Each structure stands twice: as structure tokens, then as C-alpha cells.
Lab assay of single mutants.
Amino acid sequence: MSSSSWLLLSLVAVTAAQSTIEEQAKTFLDKFNHEAEDLFYQSSLASWNYNTNITEENVQNMNNAGDKWSAFLKEQSTLAQMYPLQEIQNLTVKLQLQALQQNGSSVLSEDKSKRLNTILNTMSTIYSTGKVCNPDNPQECLLLEPGLNEIMANSLDYNERLWAWESWRSEVGKQLRPLYEEYVVLKNEMARANHYEDYGDYWRGDYEVNGVDGYDYSRGQLIEDVEHTFEEIKPLYEHLHAYVRAKLMNAYPSYISPIGCLPAHLLGDMWGRFWTNLYSLTVPFGQKPNIDVTDAMVDQAWDAQRIFKEAEKFFVSVGLPNMTQGFWENSMLTDPGNVQKAVCHPTAWDLGKGDFRILMCTKVTMDDFLTAHHEMGHIQYDMAYAAQPFLLRNGANEGFHEAVGEIMSLSAATPKHLKSIGLLSPDFQEDNETEINFLLKQALTIVGTLPFTYMLEKWRWMVFKGEIPKDQWMKKWWEMKREIVGVVEPVPHDETYCDPASLFHVSNDYSF
């Protein structure tokens, strides 16, 4: 037999072997998808029940369902290793196997995995149920939502704001400190077992692309791009910072340095994350009609249902689908009040099986009107990829998912749209002054938050990498806050605090 014939037969044999492996992989994935749908849905439903009704029974049910899901994933991840990716030609099959071969938290021992889940659930519970009591009246206690958040959004009393700011960190942050220390250790162990340098590197892996249509993007490039983007917006932020400082000097004349940092408790919310609520103090042309339409919403008797129905109309107007019937029947759109304790931070849920929901303790404000559009943007994205195989139902990356939500809320905030839905009067006219007011309001929300987020994530990356010793977490946190964000702590904090974890995203294990 000629050498060319042998070569042809060899190629046929290799192709047949690849085809056999690929067919086996497809069969394996079909079985996995069928089983995963049910187990993931049960786990998601148990998590939803806990988040909307925080009880010991629900946390136990959530843990049990989560353990079943984790055990299943660990088993299936091991089985998926049997299919070598280099022998799979079908890109859809390869991407699913690649996702499943990534072990995630299931790489930890059973004891450590359970401990990590306990830590995460405990931190979430402390954050959502933590109360601050009035020292003069111990029976008068406030949760973060709505009590403390209400103070931080609306109060102009310097000392009341300081009390709310400090009490939240003292009551909740200190409880979270030992848990967060354990969390860092276990998450790093999980990341390294998955061949990442640390948990920050694991997060950045979400943005990594290897040879898809000839395109590559590394975790290191992400760090470079983040640094570059921050340097680009820094001059604009510094101008905004100086303008806000001048306006705060008028409101709090004896508390603000004309050349120094801004006190952290005066920036519009509990964390200084969004400066939106400073608009009334900083509006350049106050004689113009108010483009913050909160009062109009209240006057027109809007409620949470109306807010979300208007958001749905907005999405339908640009060619996107209505929310499902189940969305309206199962979402929690208002604070249950004293009936039950719930996690009030707005979140969009894709539970699986076409079950999409939003959890939000909606208030009738323009801020929540825009947040509703943001969260519904997440749901629209979830619905758009719902037909994909189970392992591919995700956003391109976390940042893109947020961008989908944010672009919709930005569009909904324009005076033209607000006028079209009757929240600005029919005779409202846009001119240079109203446009400047609008742009300032947008800058308070968007530009003001960028250094906050950059600095927070930089601190977390450094902590996970071990570049900040545990006994210097708070020292470095406030050094970076002053240097990068231009914000100063109103009272000193020692290493018993854990100020970063006083933010939902940190205590609940979300990256930005």
C-alpha cells in the first residue's frame, strides 16, 4: 500500500475517532442539560424564597438545595474531563465542556465548601437584617432599607448623617470582619485549585478570550484597560469633585475643607457610591423646571407596579418582548415591611425554565424608576439567551450584562422620554440651562461612581493577591479612598471594622 493511502486511512481513522468522541460528548451534555435544568431551578427557587423571606427554615432549605446542586456539578465536572477539548471540533459542544470542566467552588473539600456557603449566607443575613438603634431610645431601631437609606438620601443634618453612617459600619461591618477574612482565604483556595493566581484573578477570567475568531484578550489586559480608563475620566471627575465640594461648603460651611477631601457621609447614600441625591444641593440653574421627576410621580399617584409597567412599555417600544406572566405573578416589587424580612437590594433573577423575576423594595422616586429599567434590562438579556444550552446561558461577561441594564436606564432618564410619559409637563422646553442641569444630574450618577468602583475593586484585587496584610485592611482602604476618590472618613476606623463589606456587593460576593 502506498504512503499516500496510509495517510488517507490515518486521517479517516482520526476523523472517525473525533466524531465518536464528539457524539459521546453531545450525548453526555444532553443528559447533563436535562438534569441540570431541574436541580438548578430547585436551588434557585430555594434561594429566592430565602431572599424574599429570611427565616431559619428557608436558609436551611437553601443550603440543602445548594448542596445538592454543588454535588451534582462536582460529579458532572469530573465526568466532563473525559472529553479532551482538543478533539472537539463543534464550537458549541467545546464551549459547554469548557464551562463544565471549570470546577468553581466544587473543587473544595465537602467541609470547606459547606463552610464557604455558611459564611456567604451568614454575611448576607447580617447585611439584610442588621439594625441600628437610637442610643437615646433603644426601642427605636432602623434597618438599612428603608430607614438608614432614607436618612442618607434626604437628611441635611450633618450629625444625623454621621450617626447613620458610623452606626451601620459599627453594627454590621464589625460583625462581618471575621467572616470576610475567612471568605478571602477560602475563595483564594478555590481559585488556585482552578489554576488561577487568586480570587481576583478568577474574577478577571470572566473577561478572558482565547482564540475565538482570531481574537484574544487576557486577564492582564483587563487590568491595563481599567487603569487606562480611570486615567481618562480622572480630569472630568476632579472637576466634578471640586464643583460638588464648593456646593457642599454652602450646605455644611464649617465641615468642608476648600482644598481637601469630601467627608464620606455627605455624598448622597450610605457609601458615597452614587452622588445622585446631591442634585438638589448642586443644581446649576435651580429656577428651571426640576428634571428630577420624583415629585411628579408622587403627585400622579405612581406605585411600584406603574413604575415597572412603564419600564416594560419602554422596552417594547424598542422592539423587545413583554415580561412574562410569571414575572408579574412572582416578582417581589415592594418591601414586605413587618410581614417578613427580605433582601431589599435590587436584583434580577433568571431562575431557569423561563422563570424570570425582579426583587426590589421599590420606592416612588426617579432613582428607583431608573433602577427598574436597569434591572429589567438584565431580564431582557436573560430572556434573549434563554434558548441557548444551559451552560451557555450567561452574558458575554459581567460588565456587558451591567452595560445592557445601564444603557436602558440612561435612555429612560432623558427629558424627551420623561416628557413623553407625562412626568415633565407638555410645555417643558429644553435649552442650554436645562441641558446643563440634566448633564450634571447624569454626571453625579455616572462620573461620580467610577472612581468609587475602581478603587473598591483595586482594593479587593490587592487583598486577594495578598498585597495588603490583614492587619492593614482598613488603613489601606482609607488611604486609597483619600488618594483615588478624594473622600475622607469622618471618624477614624481601626482594624475591627470592615467598611468594604458594608456594601451589598462585597458582603454578597459580587464583583463589579
Rank of each mutant, 00 (worst) to 15 (best):
E56Q: 09
N49L: 04
E75A: 15
V93P: 15
N61Q: 14
L91F: 10
N63L: 13
N64Q: 12
H34R: 04
V59E: 11
L73R: 13
A65C: 08
L91T: 14
M62K: 11
D38V: 01
Q102F: 09
Y83T: 01
Q42N: 03
Q60R: 14
K74T: 10
Q96S: 03
L95C: 08
Q102G: 12
A71V: 10
V59R: 13
K26N: 11
L95A: 13
F28L: 02
M82Y: 08
D30H: 01
T92D: 15
N63G: 07
K26D: 15
N51V: 05
Q24P: 08
S19R: 06
Q60C: 11
E35V: 15
A71S: 11
E57R: 05
N33K: 03
L95H: 08
Q98C: 14
N61R: 13
Q24N: 00
F28V: 01
N33R: 02
P84M: 04
Q89F: 13
W48G: 00
W48S: 00
F40C: 14
M62S: 07
T92Y: 15
I54E: 07
L29K: 00
N90A: 15
E37S: 01
T20L: 04
V59S: 12
T20D: 05
T20S: 11
A65P: 05
E57V: 05
K31R: 02
D38E: 04
N61T: 12
Q76M: 15
N64I: 13
K26H: 07
F40Y: 09
Q24L: 03
N49K: 05
N90W: 15
V59D: 13
Q96H: 04
N90Y: 15
T20H: 04
T20Y: 02
V93F: 05
W69R: 14
E56W: 10
Y41F: 00
L29V: 01
T20G: 07
A71W: 11
D30Q: 03
I54L: 08
E75Y: 14
W69I: 15
V59L: 13
M62Q: 06
Q42L: 15
H34N: 04
K74S: 07
Y41D: 01
L39G: 14
F72E: 02
Q42M: 15
Q102Y: 05
E56N: 08
M62H: 04
E37T: 04
E56I: 07
K31M: 06
V93I: 10
N33F: 01
K74R: 11
Q60V: 13
Q96A: 04
K68H: 09
M82Q: 02
Y83D: 01
K26S: 14
N64R: 13
Q24S: 01
A25I: 14
V59W: 13
K31H: 05
D30G: 02
L79I: 15
Y50G: 03
Q89R: 14
L79T: 15
Q89T: 13
P84Y: 03
Q98A: 10
L79W: 15
W48R: 03
Q76T: 15
Q89S: 11
Q42I: 15
E22F: 06
I54V: 11
D67A: 10
N33G: 06
W48Y: 00
M62P: 02
L39H: 14
Y41H: 03
Q98E: 13
E57I: 04
L29P: 00
T27C: 15
Y50Q: 04
E35L: 06
E37R: 01
I21E: 04
S19F: 14
T20A: 10
A65L: 09
T92H: 15
W69M: 06
H34L: 02
Q42D: 00
N51R: 08
M82C: 15
Q89L: 11
E22Y: 06
L95I: 07
E75Q: 15
M62G: 03
L91Y: 11
A25K: 02
E75C: 14
L29E: 06
K68N: 12
Y41I: 00
Q89C: 14
M62I: 06
N63Q: 14
E22G: 06
T27G: 01
L79P: 15
L39K: 15
E56G: 05
Q60E: 12
W48V: 00
E35D: 15
E22H: 04
V59P: 03
Q96N: 01
E57H: 03
K26G: 07
N64A: 14
A65T: 05
Q60N: 11
N63K: 13
Q76V: 15
M62D: 02
F72C: 03
M62C: 07
A25S: 06
N49M: 09
S19N: 07
K31W: 15
D67N: 13
A71E: 10
T27D: 15
A46C: 04
N90S: 15
N49T: 12
A65W: 15
Q98S: 14
N64W: 06
Y50C: 05
F28K: 00
E75G: 15
F72L: 07
L79V: 15
N64Y: 13
A65H: 12
A46R: 03
L91N: 14
F40S: 12
D30P: 01
Q24E: 05
N61F: 13
N63E: 12
L45Q: 01
H34Y: 02
N33C: 15
E56H: 05
Y50E: 04
L79E: 01
V93T: 13
I21C: 03
E75V: 14
